[in-house]
Every structure is written in C-alpha cells, then in structure tokens.
Design a protein around this nucleic acid. Structure first.
Lengths: 227, 227
DNA sequence: CGGGCAATTGACGGTCTTCAATGAACGTGG
DNA sequence: CCACGTTCATTGAAGACCGTCAATTGCCCG
C-alpha cells in the first residue's frame, strides 16, 4: 500500500504508464507536498532541482522582465506535470493559485527513473507535445486578438476546464484568478480586464455574481466575440 | 550506404540516438523531399499524416484567425523536428521560408518506429521540452514588449542563429524573413516593423545594407533596447 | 528601360495603457 | 455584530503607441 494506490490522478498522470511494481519504485523517490494559495514551488532561474505531478489544485507558470512586467505562460491542473527534466535550469516560476497538493521528485532521481522506464517518457512526451500545441495557440491570442476577444476566449477556456460536473448550469464557475492575474495571462492591464468584463456583463453575455464567479448567459454570443 | 550516412544533420537531429542498424530501418521508412521558398509542407487542420526532420533550410510554423490575421508560432532550423506525432491533427501550417530539404516520414510509420526505439523518443522529448521553453519565453515578448523591444529582441535572436561561422563580422546576416513575416512573428504590422528598423538604423545601432541584410553596429545598445 | 512588388514614409484615429480617484468586499479586532 | 482598515475591483480622464489608410520610393526582374 503506497500513497499512489489512493492517488486521485493515478490513472491520468504520466504515472499511468507504470506497472504496480514500477509505481512502487517511483513512489519511493517522490514525496507529497501541500501548497497554500499564493505559495511558490519553483523560482525562475533556479537550478532545476525538482519536478512534480499535480494531484490537486491549480498552479501558474510565470516569467517576467527585469523592470517588473509579468506574464503567465502556462496554467497547470490536476494530473499535469511540472518542471524541467533533462535541463539545468528552470525558465519560469511555478506558484500555486489555489491550495494545492503535488507529488514532488528530485530532478536527478526523476531523470534516472525516466531513463529506465520508456513508457513513462512516452507519456511525458505526449503531454509535452499537447502542451506545446496549446501554448502555440495561445500565442495567436496574445499577438493578434483584441482585449474583448481575449477576455471572451479566456472565459470560454475557463468554463471548459472548470465546469463542475454535478452542476446543472455548465456556464457557471469560480475563477481561480484575480483580475490582475487574468491580465497577466492575457497580456492586458487590470483596468482593461475590468472594463471588458463589465462590458460583457452590460451586454447580457455574462453575469458576475461575485468577484470570482462568472456565469455565461449567452455562450453562442461569447463564442462569436471570441473570434 | 544509405542517405543517412551522408546526412549533414546526422549527429544533431533526433536520429543521433540510433545505432547504424536502427538508422537503416528508419531510413527505410523515410524519404527526402525538397521544398522551394514559400512552398507549404503541412496545412493547419490537416490530418496529421506526416512528420519530418529538417536537413537544410528554414521553415515557419503558422496559424491564423478566420478573418485572416496570421501569426508565426515557431521557426525551425536544420536538425529540428517537424510535425505532430501521436496526435490526430496538426494545429499549425508548416511552410518553407527558404529553399529547404527535409526527411519525411508517414506519421503512422514514425509513431510505430518511435515506440520501438526509446532512445529516439528521449531525444524527441528533450527537443520538445526545449522548444516549449523557447515558446513560453516568446509569449512574454508578444504580450508585454513594445514594438522597439520586439524588433531588438528579434534581431539579436536572428544574429545568434544565423551568424556565419566563417564571417569575421558576427553581427552581419541575411534575414530569412520579409518585413511582413517579421511582423507575423512579432505580432506587429509591416509598417511598424519598417519604422522601428529605420529608427534603429537612424540611431546608429544597426545598418541595413540591403532589404534582407542586417548589420549590428552596437550590440550592447541593442541588448539594452531589447530589455 | 519599365513593370511589379516590397518597403518606406506620412497623416490620422482607435485601442489600450497610465494615472488617479472612488467604490466594494473581506478580515480583524473591539 | 459592527466599525474600521486593507486589499481588490471599478470607473473616469488623458495620452501614448501602434494600426489603418494612402502615397511614394526603391529594388529586382525581365
């Protein structure tokens, strides 16, 4: 009986490539760690000393310029992989957006283990290729879309990822981001984010019951705006 | 004696993971193909039916919105890998920027071969992880940098990739991009690209001997501008 | 030499940022 | 439970930057 046996992402994370005996070996080199919302896990420019699987919660990958401009370059969800195996340094920070639980490995240990388990590397490759596709799609948004299109695209993306399975209203969810963080994802200022959200609410496309909650009232219209 | 034996990227592309006998097998399922500048290799949204290694030349990966805005989401050089293994569709177009030679594989053949050769998958994983890092860095540029900073960053990036080994002047090279394509990389219009390049020339930071040529006169200043 | 395309240059306008103030939500302590 | 301070979000006004539209120049090729 190991921690893996009861792990909620056991069948979705890259670990799903492993046989029970192999999983035991992996479990032996990893450890659980909990993070509070806002707590950092890895700093940009650090020596790449650890990698991790997300068990629960949402984390952001971010980078910034010297003069303080920040950009969120990725968001990871349960079963996603974090960190930079086979590389000396980490090029972006990792910070918890919500309370989170992760399964952490020393990078050297993980690199060695992965080298001996091609199935694990295969899963990691698939995940990385999919992430690269998603990241490249996001570049189009950052470079070419208007503020209104960005917000609409963002809200649709969030609704797909966060829609509560039980909830009857598929278009209602709580954002794991502050307005500032939404700006950091979309390459906008907090004021522009606020104005565009208010505009969508005024036009009856969405509702904003609380600071963090969003309800999509007219999905077709939102999709049209997203472009 | 196979085509691989004389291949100029033999020791740099993912093929370098293979033993001679394995290389023979890979050679058997691949074929060479030449592309002229401007010629497409893969279209966005196509079924992912082929993957390739770049032998010679430079190609762009691009995507666009329905209303015609285009964005270049990646640029690949000799020894780089092209395409989307283990996935049903390709999410961006691939087009030659210069005359190019590539080593093409049917995706199904490549997927099978890769599954049987973990060393190859390992190389591909390393390459994909590095590409993801680079792509994420580029997001910061697209989302947060000014036009001037974008152009300066772009020119420095080009100078590193293109500097002729023999040339005494490391800061002189020919761009493989038109002004329009530079705009498509940086998320700018052709006019803004032109204006910023002219400004850098006027300020004595660079020289523009011909349409495609660039000479960096003051690298330190250019780096300062790049931010 | 001349046609055609790429690049440059100019004028103007819109979008988003910046700066600043107000308003709402949340937690703490009385 | 409410007063208060702090943080986050909203709103407003002004302006910078970049995009758009249009005209011109320069380069490359036949």
């Amino acid at each position: 009986m190991t921690a893996c046996d009861t792990c909620s992402v056991r069948n979705h994370a890259i670990c799903s490539a492993l046989e029970p005996a192999e999983l035991n070996s992996l479990n032996a080199i990893g450890r659980r760690r909990t993070l509070e919302a806002g707590e950092p896990l890895i700093w940009e420019g650090d020596d790449s000393i650890l990698v991790a699987n997300v068990i629960d919660g949402i984390l952001k990958l971010s980078t910034g310029t010297e003069d303080g401009r920040e950009q969120i370059v990725g968001v990871v969800y349960p079963a996603d992989f974090i960190g930079r195996p086979f590389g000396a340094t980490t090029r972006h920070s990792v910070t918890a957006l919500t309370d989170a639980r992760v399964c952490v490995f020393a990078r050297a240990d993980f690199d060695r283990f992965a080298g001996e388990h091609p199935g694990l590397e295969h899963k990691l490759l698939q995940r990385t290729l999919a992430e690269l596709d998603r990241t490249r799609s996001w570049m189009l948004l950052l470079a070419r879309k208007s503020a209104e299109e960005k917000i609409a695209t963002f809200l649709l993306d969030m609704s797909e990822r966060l829609a509560e399975p039980g909830s009857a209203s598929l278009g209602r969810f709580d954002l794991p981001f502050s307005r500032q963080q939404i700006g950091d994802v979309l390459g906008l200022t907090i004021e522009t984010v606020s104005r565009q959200m208010t505009k969508l609410k005024r036009d009856g496309v969405i509702d904003l019951p609380t600071r963090r909650a969003v309800a999509i009232l007219d999905r077709a219209e939102l999709e049209a705006i997203a472009g």
